[in-house]
Amino acid sequence: MENLLSVFSYSFFWRALIVGVLVSLCAALLGVNLVLKRYSMLGDGLSHVAFGAAAVALAVGAAPLKVAVPVVVIAAFLLLRISENGKIKGDAAIAVVSSSALAIGVIVATMTTGMNTDINNYMFGSILAVSKEDVVFTVIIAVAVILMYLLFYNRLFAATFDENFAAATGVKVKLYNCLLAVLTAVTVVIGMRMMGALLISSIITFPALSSMRVCRKYRSVTVVSVIISVFSFLTGLFLSVCYDMPAGASVVVVNLIIFLVLSFSGRIRK
């Protein structure tokens, strides 16, 4: 408890709190559409690409975020094109791209800087690593994601429920898919610092899966996902500060527990 009180006076804590809450919120919103479109592997693939890009950037002494954002956005476009194309299996393509990026990242890191704490932080996350720049960037992205949801909520629903019908009746499905991919890419990159590249994709999928256990309406799935996601983050952060647990991993475990509890109670209700 003393830990918890004293920690409020550290600016790194406030930065982590702001970035964490906003990233959780964005991840939950994007996650609902990604999971329902069966694109949930996209987040996972992109996080590995983000790690690879960050490791290479560290090795050559460039700013990891500035390298990772464009690389991951391009990867997102490519993976989306492959998934839409339908000839090559989308999930297989993502698996190949993601493990290749991870492998390249690990090799570059070991050969140059070694597997130091920086690399470790990118893999598993650290709340100490959030910079002021990250905060500004996160706020911008969060505003973009929230605006997109508010303005295009109905069209996103139509495009997610039935892509063909939406496209046939004048919804710009391809545009929304691109928007979804780009925002997911950026969310993954900014969340990676704190949550870890290997853990970030679970905060995209878990809240949506959990809320779908108990909600039968799209609107309530969206709202409940956001609540679950932010709650899990705050609980995970609390555990990490009080008991010195790793933040990213704690958030994931809280999400897991919520998922299990909701699955169980959902079964009882049926």
């Binding site: 329902l36 508010l150 303005l151 909520y153 109905n154 069209r155 629903f157 139509a158 495009a159 429920f161 039935d162 019908f165 939406a166 009746t169 004048g170 919804v171 779908m212 909600c215 039968r216 309406k217 799209y218 609107r219 799935v221």
Partner: peptide, 25 residues
């Protein structure tokens, strides 16, 4: 889609999604 969480009314209304006048609500 088998397991898509959406109410009947949400789906019927989504017929209007492509219309120009459709906004947040």
């Amino acid at each position: 889609k088998r397991d898509f969480p959406a109410s009947v009314f949400e789906i019927v209304l989504s017929g209007f999604a492509g219309k120009k006048e459709t906004g947040l609500f």
